[in-house]
Design a protein around this nucleic acid. Structure first.
Lengths: 187, 187
DNA sequence: GCAAATTAATGATTTATTCAAG
DNA sequence: CTTGAATAAATCATTAATTTGC
């Protein structure tokens, strides 16, 4: 039980992270030479061989693809419910390269407090729910409805910020390898 | 009637991908406003509510952290085998295991609330809203209300939150996927 | 091939901590 | 020291994936 000497490679967390990062950066089927380099680098973090690297990429690619397929099939199911489904690149999960790219955070520049109606609406619901008796602003027994706040149609600007990049730049292997049924375009 | 009696939200692949992309971009605990916007945007791809977005980020963050922790512990095991472990990006994907800290939601100073109930135990409060009944479409049971900030009757300046400054003033649990080893002291 | 049974993922709730304000 | 606000951790619960016996 201590050290099965040569059972199978067990990636260290560092190795795993590096491999995943590489995958994320677009690496899919590294060449023999690349594999050797990768293995060499990763061997700093634990025992590893080239074949481990090779297998890892094989497996990871396959499993990501499988995951994608699952999602797609589930998506079809949901389509039956009738969604508009606008255009969007549903393509390969292949995401963003590792280099510093757009960080589009909301940048709300604070302020933006809610308009009064938002709060009113919620208070209404709270009272309905709980039949409040509290003389004033008794926050103890909430009606648990922060949800309703969120659900409020956003009357404000709601400029649907640029939060959504989905810059799939790199799609290489995933969409184009052997069978490449990755295909996008559900609509 | 084939109105799916779906009790719970089932994210479409697009929604999932966008959420994951946001997470990768550093989004961890979006503010209420952000949640609204995200939900609004994602609703283009299927039915979704703000609470789903909220829960998704909560869960995803927690489970990523859990995964990290597992890896770390396994890593310690492997350390016993005697690996050099040079320092590398083993660092924080988000938070580090055991130290939750600092929330930065500013409170809008609701200065005068009841103080009539001096010795109110906070466990009491929890018991109060422990009444779940309607099995479906119940938004009843919810305990915490950070949104209460938003529904305060007094719309004072309410300059709450610079919740999501791109400039990352109070880096809380965001730590994008870049390198820049923020490696806390792990050893 | 197919459903019932089992297992894995993950959405949704509840409980415990943490920190700050009073 | 007490308490409100926020959230992380733990847990519950349901959906999907997989396995299994026919």
């Amino acid at each position: 039980m201590p050290q099965s000497p040569s059972t199978r490679w067990c990636p260290t967390p560092e190795q795993l992270m590096i491999l995943e990062e590489m995958y994320r950066s677009g690496v899919r089927t590294p060449s023999a030479q690349q594999i050797q380099q990768i293995a060499a680098h990763l061997s700093n973090y634990g025992r590893i061989e080239g074949k481990n690297v090779f297998y890892w990429f094989q497996n990871h690619k396959a499993r990501e693809r499988q995951k994608l397929r699952r999602r797609l099939s589930r998506h079809y199911q949901l389509l039956c419910s009738g969604h508009s489904l606008p255009h969007h690149q549903l393509c390969c999960m292949q995401d963003v390269p590792a280099f510093p790219h757009s960080h589009h955070h909301a940048t709300p520049t604070h302020s933006h407090h809610l308009e009064s109606n938002g709060g009113l609406n919620l208070l209404e619901k709270m009272e309905i729910n709980n039949a409040k008796e509290a003389p004033e602003t008794n926050y103890e027994t909430f009606g648990h409805e922060w949800t309703s706040v969120m659900m409020l149609p956003n009357h404000r600007s709601l400029r649907t910020l640029d939060l959504f990049p989905t810059t799939s730049t790199g799609l290489k292997d995933e969409c184009a390898t052997s069978n490449s049924s990755c295909s996008t375009s559900i609509n």
